[in-house]
Every structure is written in structure tokens, then in C-alpha cells.
Amino acid sequence: MSPPSLRALSWLVVRDVNRTVGGGMASIELMRRSLGRRGWLDDGEHGVLVAVSRFTPGTNVLAYCAALGWMHQRVIGAAVAVAGASLPGAALVTAMTAAVATLDRWPAVRAVLALATLVAGGLVLSSAWALLGPYLRGSRRGWTLASAAIAAALFLAGATPVRVLLALAVWGALTPPRQKA
């Protein structure tokens, strides 16, 4: 299938990133679903984009969008995807700051935000499963479980996410798959 046009890519990013609250991983999951349905991104490419976004300083979802835009439309794709993902929220935050809105004054607003955050939590967990699923179904299930266990243990021991990722990168480099005879 041909790659998405700049217009299609921009619309997809603007729509999927700006319809979740509670963080970028929920947005990334929505983009994965939309792009995957259209055949514009497979699970392997998505995994690489997630890995890149986790190692890029700053906001993960913007790094994901920059890499995604570059993958399909080079410089202009990266610029448009990052702008589309960040400008609506930035404009809204500016307007709220200017109006010194006190959102938590209204219980109905609080309830809507809480429900939206609950949905975002579900999307984040779904994203974790979407990333792990292909590995658990593959031939290196034991290695996958060991990697996840090491990551969880390091996190529970108080290591920062970046240190966990770096440690797992080393672990992965030291445990390459055996070559078939």
C-alpha cells in the first residue's frame, strides 16, 4: 500500500493526538490503530518508533510524531506532525492560563476529566499489550518474559525509566538470538 499523503497523515495525527487526555501513550495507541488499519504502519515499525520516542528527550508522543512524519514524508512530514500534535493543546493551555480558569471548581468538569483519564488509562494498558503481544506469541517467549521481569524489577527497585531502558538495551545486546544451523 502507498504511504499516506501529507494531508492524510496530518489529519490522522491531529485527530488521534488531540482526542485523549492523560498523556501521550494513549494517543500513540490510537495512532497505531488508525495507521495499522490503513496498512501504513506494521507492528515492527511501530515498535521501532516507540523505542525511538522513549530514547528521545522531551515529550514521547511528539518524538513519535516527528519520527512517524519523517518516515512517511521526511522533513515536512515531521514538522507538520509535531505541529499538529502540539498546537491545539498549546493554544488551549494558553487560553486557559490567560483566563485563569479554575477548572476544578465545577464538579461536572472534574467528573468528565476523570472519565477521560480512566479511558486514557485503559488505552495505555492496551498499548502495553499491543507492544508485548507479538513477542509473547513469537519464538522467544521465555526471553521476552525475562526481559519484562528485569524491567519490572529495576523499576520497582527505584531505577528511572531511562536507566531501565538503557539496562535493557545492554541486556538485549548481550543476548542475541542463536543462529540457526
Binding site: A51, L113, L131, Y135, L168
Partner: peptide, 29 residues
């Protein structure tokens, strides 16, 4: 395999984030 391990670690780290978001939301509700 280093990238694979990073992807798996990233996915594992998402679990506490997702649970934390859901827990906050339920507490707020």
C-alpha cells in the same frame, strides 16, 4: 535484540502508568 528489549521494557513501564492513571481517575470520581 537491544531494540526488542527496549520495546519490551517500554511496554512493561506502561503498566504502572496505565494503572496510575486509572487509579487517579477512580479516586477523582
Amino acid at each position: 535484540t537491544a531494540v526488542d528489549a527496549v520495546i519490551i521494557a517500554g511496554a512493561t513501564l506502561l503498566v504502572p502508568s496505565g494503572v496510575g492513571l486509572a487509579r487517579d481517575a477512580i479516586a477523582q470520581l
